[in-house]
Design a protein around this nucleic acid. Structure first.
Lengths: 224, 224
DNA sequence: TTTAAATGATAGTATTACTATTAACTTCGC
DNA sequence: GCGAAGTTAATAGTAATACTATCATTTAAA
């Protein structure tokens, strides 16, 4: 299994970057350090000048890898969803029972991403924290339709469709499998944010609680 | 009822503005026109220079009402949630049956806001469209905890808690009423966005569909 | 009618998000 | 080991944004 993990690679849409960051140590530094900085200060406070300073390089060098910070955020987001998809596939592989599969997928979605299967040895917690806070900004903007067309969200959508299919596998008569899948994936980001910043708008303050909440919701919705 | 509607006023946290926009025609113009512009071009493209031009005033005059565009967005958001809360309360008033009450509240949440009960005669559709696209940006930032502390999200939170209490009224043993309430309110914004921009990540492309999806979810979750 | 308050007009600053240019360093084929 | 090609660094510059400041003018209230 370890070999499989290290040989597989998250395949990120190549139009998200100008030069593949995995192709050089500077590129890897750009991604790793940007994850540190965005995790720490948020995307608004983050810019290429600060990033350049942090890695001891220059703005112009960073611009050779990414057109702008928005694209970099999309790259980081794809990295996250790619890892999540990979883990979901690995974890649910060869599970014959539909409900068990679905629950395993949900549990995986609420877990910390394993960054081992990438070139970037970053803390999965940081990656998830970034996605919790910043992913909504990656698609809530004027050019979302163009970017969606260009495939910048394809990994995210593929994961949602996988989940949707798993839901259909549990109950083929359920009419809202796509909406339910989106609801869960959104929740996997948002409920953590609520716990951190709007404490009494959620009852889930641990991964276990969250899993229980969605398990209950899904079991009742799909089997009653 | 009409008198009640016109005499009641959505009470917005006064630290969101420097000078109450409802106190002058310029203030009302600022809010009305900003809703038009943000609806049309999104919050990133929007700035006080463009707003000033649109209403035939100046940047400096607008800065006398709102400290910055972020505060203005928070003001508009409070307006939306205030209307939603008001409508929910009016619509569910005197309903003895808990489930019926909850369903009416959900239906109201997915409806277009009635702006009659404000000083701003704007199209409710625009207001909802802005919230669908921009509300997440109102709290996904570095200063969220400070702003939350200052009460900038109090109407939103009060609405979530009302919904949470309604859920508890249906099933007192359900342990996740806060999380479920947040999930519904988030969904009332997000599922519309999905329908518009990520069409096949949802099955709900009308208000009726959405209502059915959540009705099914809530009925099964709370009564089985 | 006087006075204060509100608004307009204009100018200016710091920061951001880039673009352009040139110089220096690295790497790779030969 | 050498030169060419590619990569990165250093520096400078631009347009737009998000304000702040000042003072003149208009409007409203006492």
């Amino acid at each position: 299994m370890h070999n499989l993990l290290s040989s597989l690679r998250v395949d990120i849409n190549s139009s998200l970057y100008l030069k593949d960051p995995e192709s050089s140590s500077l590129g890897i530094n750009i991604v790793k350090s940007s994850i540190d900085l965005i995790d720490l200060h948020g995307i608004e406070e983050f810019n290429f000048k600060k990033l350049a300073k942090a890695i001891g390089s220059t703005e112009s060098s960073i611009y050779r890898y990414f057109e702008n910070k928005h694209r970099l955020l999309l790259y980081i987001s794809s990295l996250y969803w790619g890892i999540m998809e990979f883990q979901t596939v690995v974890q649910t592989n060869n599970m014959p029972d539909g409900m068990e599969r679905l629950m395993k997928a949900v549990e995986t979605l609420f877990s910390t991403p394993q960054t081992k299967c990438t070139s970037f040895e970053v803390e999965g917690q940081k990656l998830r924290h970034i996605l919790n806070s910043e992913f909504v900004k990656a698609y809530h903007h004027k050019l979302v339709d163009e970017e969606n067309e260009a495939g910048y969200f394809s990994i995210y959508k593929r994961l949602a469709l996988r989940l949707s299919e798993m839901i259909a596998g549990v109950n083929a008569n359920y009419r809202y499998n796509n909406s339910l899948a989106s609801l869960i994936i959104e929740g996997s980001l948002n409920q953590y944010f609520l716990s951190e910043h709007f404490h009494n708008l959620t009852d889930c303050h641990s991964k276990d609680n969250l899993y229980e909440f969605y398990k209950d919701l899904l079991t009742k919705t799909l089997t009653s």
